[in-house]
Amino acid sequence: MLRDFRRLARLAAVGFAAAAAMGCQSGASVTVDISVPRPLVQPLDVDMGVYFDDTLKNYVHEEELEEYGDYRIDIGASQVPVFAQVFDAMFDRVIPVIQEPAVEDPTTPAASAAVSFRPVDGPRVAVDGILAPSIDEVQFAIPDQTGGEFYEVWIRYNLKLLGADGALLGEWPVIGYGKANQRNYGAIDQKEVALNEATIWALRDAAAWLSFQFPDQAEVQTWLTTLDDMP
């Protein structure tokens, strides 16, 4: 009996030491698949086309942190639900669009050619403009690195506003920042849960910026004025 206890205790001690040693190196892998609540904002009276490319829809951030292991943050699945929810609240009418194959025109320089879009479903309909978000960069930090209390995630988007003809009217960086306090996750290491939470807050933060700030951008104001002036 005593021998069994000692064997168990020895195994436990070795296991604990191994776990402690590996704990610093284990990294994390999170897949964030959420939406955000519908923003409480006054919608703009426009027909807005929205375009999500495959890079956005499949975005995965992978990074090896020296001393802290491999990290993988998959946020692709959240992009369409988040933007669709936000745009739906921001505009009276939202029409998902896809990019049409470019038609080569030898008289037009390639760089200045406008991109052409059509609705995902149904016949061609007129839109006032097209919004196309993309992700420029994702960064994250863990408390072991920073010496702070938080798991932190930054997502830098690029948001393009295109005219109905596909010409670029304006583009803006949209920064989403989220953090999760490690003190909320107890003594047991729950870095994946914390990193997931920080990413969710980063997505919400980007959605909040879009809801509040987009209508106030100078280019957007100019564009809205031109729409008002149209017959």
Partner: peptide, 28 residues
């Protein structure tokens, strides 16, 4: 969630005056 995005970490009012301003909006 019900008041999204008015009480997010970066957008939530920081003072009682700010709070009054946010809650004073008809939508909120």
């Amino acid at each position: 969630d019900a008041t999204f995005p008015w009480f997010e970490p970066r957008t939530a009012p920081r003072t009682m005056d700010d709070l009054a301003g946010v809650i004073g909006r008809p939508l909120i």
